[in-house]
């Protein structure tokens, strides 16, 4: 389970002359739930934009498998990106279309499947995220959590190899956030997809992350990486400790089980 799936090679992110992050190097392996974390404004979302082809890095490149994303021709880049799915922070569903049409959109545009088959696929994807039967609803008629799950169904429409999540649990209550975390984990387990999470939600990071990169806003580069739970236990960097313990480093070595939200995740996921 250690085939590299996504390689970030010597990447520098900048808006014009203003450098956000420099010299990023890390590898995301197949089957990882990789967390990109850091305080607000450190460049997490900018990094995501560079990974999913929305913004060209100032320097460096991204490799999907062995293929370079930014040296590829635009057509080849589109083909690479079709193997990815992205869930945006607010779901980013197209508001003029129903949920069914939203999920069907990539299928009708990028495949030659019959309408009947697309309908079945849409029903299946919506059922996967717990929205069976909601095809005819418009996004505005759903709650935030449902919109997010519907966004996930759309992101999964083409059976992507890599799923990117931008702040998946932002704006969700703890229960919905945990359900979404569970869903992300079981999708990883059963679909064999690789998951990249951009988040600062501590509960999610520690609950489902298997590997991580910690971006620092002051030194403008990655200052830690590895399994978040191990980082919490072993890291010596004060910034990382402050982030992972919410400045409450006295409690650092207490067992994680003391946190009621987290205890559940220590056991194997049981659906």
């Amino acid at each position: 389970m250690t085939t590299p799936c996504l390689t970030i090679d010597n990447m520098t992110l900048a808006y014009g002359d203003f450098i956000i992050q420099r010299d990023l190097n890390f590898t995301i392996n197949r089957g990882d739930i990789f967390v990109v974390m850091g305080v607000s404004g450190c460049g997490k979302s900018t990094l995501l934009m560079n990974l999913i082809g929305l913004m060209r890095p100032a320097k460096g490149d991204v490799f999907y498998g062995g293929e370079s994303l930014w040296q590829a021709e635009p057509d080849a880049r589109k083909r690479i990106l079709q193997r990815t799915g992205v869930l945006f922070q607010g779901g980013a569903l197209l508001s003029s279309m129903t949920l069914g049409e939203n999920v069907a959109l990539p299928l009708t545009e990028h495949t030659r499947l019959s309408p009947q088959r697309i309908r079945e696929l849409v029903a299946y994807k919506l059922a996967l995220v717990g929205l069976a039967g909601f095809e005819g609803y418009y996004p505005a008629e759903l709650s935030g959590g449902m919109q997010k799950r519907a966004g996930l169904a759309r992101a999964m429409a083409l059976d992507p190899e890599i799923l990117f999540f931008d702040e998946p649990s932002a704006g969700l209550d703890p229960v919905s956030a945990k359900l979404l975390d569970d869903l992300i984990r079981s999708l990883r387990d059963h679909l064999g997809a690789t998951i990249v999470l951009v988040t600062h939600e501590l509960a999610s990071i520690l609950a489902i992350g298997t590997n991580s990169a910690f971006l620092d806003a002051e030194t403008k580069t990655m200052i830690a990486s590895g399994d978040p739970k191990r980082l919490l236990a072993e890291s010596r960097d004060p910034k990382v400790i402050r982030f992972l313990t919410r400045e409450d480093s006295a409690n650092r070595h207490k067992p994680i089980q003391s946190n009621p939200i987290l205890t559940h995740h220590q056991e194997p996921c049981d659906l």
Binding site: L128, L131, A132, G133, E135, Y137, H190, L191, L271
Partner: peptide
């Protein structure tokens, strides 16, 4: 296989809400 079973469990985990489906 285990992966398929897991996905099927997800699909049937949340039963379709009664009255959610809309007739055109």
């Amino acid at each position: 296989p285990e992966g398929i079973q897991g996905l099927l469990r997800l699909v049937y985990a949340v039963p379709e809400r009664v009255g959610a489906r809309r007739k055109e």
